[in-house]
Amino acid sequence: MIRVLIVDDHEVVRQGLRFVLDQEDGVEVAGECANGEQALALTRALRPSVMLLDLVMPGMDGLDVLRRLGDDRPAVIVLTSFHEDERILEAIRLGALSYLPKTTAVDRVVEAVRAAAHGGSVLEPRIAGLLVRRMRGERPDPLSVLTPREREVLTALARGRSNVEIARSLSLGRETVKTHVSSILAKLGVTDRTQAAIVGLQQGLVPLDEALLDPDG
């Protein structure tokens, strides 16, 4: 019997996963919880064979759970709505066997649970490709951590657009643009919008002759 622990801070997600897994022969949901602290406690108490683990939760997040699990750990499947490649790769480095987005079809989730119980992995092709490139020592794309909207904002930054201009061109509020810019700076590890724009130029988001860097934004 494959005993599964579901760890997710959204009750609806937990209920959906429980419903799906309870229909499967040879699979039972041993327990569920909403945060990392409970996950560690239930792992010790219930000894599940597989853990479905959300990466982003209040308090102790999924990466912290992976860091604190002992040697006698369940097979971990990261199931999350966030698509930051570096976080996903870090989860795999910390021992997660599989990564699946929450939009994954239910049969794919069941496949991942059965595979994990036997030490197997199920990965999105994009993540598998990233792992292969890392193993080959290829330099990762620094923009891979950005969402599609953040790439649009960074492209506008590389063209020297102000927040007002970006908001107008992308039909966003000014505060939303400021939030995107702050996220871009944090993800790229730079301190201002000019440095971010330079990264965008280096990665070919816009031709150099279209760049009008404006540090004041």
Rank of each mutant, 00 (worst) to 15 (best):
I2R: 09
L5R: 10
I6E: 01
V7A: 06
E11S: 14
V12H: 10
V12Q: 14
V13Y: 00
V13G: 05
Q15W: 08
V20R: 13
D22W: 01
D22K: 15
G26M: 10
G26R: 11
V27M: 11
V27E: 10
E28N: 07
E28H: 06
V29S: 03
G31K: 10
C33P: 08
G36M: 08
Q38V: 00
Q38C: 03
A39F: 01
A39G: 05
A45C: 05
L46Y: 01
S49W: 07
S49F: 03
V50T: 06
V50I: 05
L52E: 06
L53Y: 00
M57C: 05
M57N: 07
M57W: 02
M57S: 02
L63N: 04
D64I: 07
G70I: 02
D72L: 12
D72T: 12
R73H: 04
I77V: 06
I77R: 06
L79M: 13
T80G: 08
S81L: 14
F82E: 15
H83F: 08
I88N: 08
I88V: 11
E90M: 13
E90L: 15
A91P: 09
L97M: 03
L100P: 07
L100C: 03
T103R: 14
T103V: 13
V110T: 03
V110Q: 05
E111G: 07
A115F: 02
G119V: 03
S121V: 04
L123K: 07
P125R: 12
L131F: 03
R133M: 07
R133S: 04
R134V: 01
E138C: 03
R139H: 09
R139N: 11
V145H: 05
T147F: 02
R151I: 03
L154N: 10
L154M: 08
A156G: 12
L157N: 04
L157F: 01
G160I: 05
S162N: 06
N163K: 12
E165G: 11
A167R: 10
S171P: 01
E175Q: 13
V177E: 11
V177C: 11
T179W: 11
V181D: 04
S183C: 08
G189Y: 00
V190K: 11
R193S: 14
V199K: 12
G200V: 04
L201M: 15
P207I: 00
L208G: 14
L208V: 10
A211Y: 00
L212D: 15
L213S: 02
P215L: 01
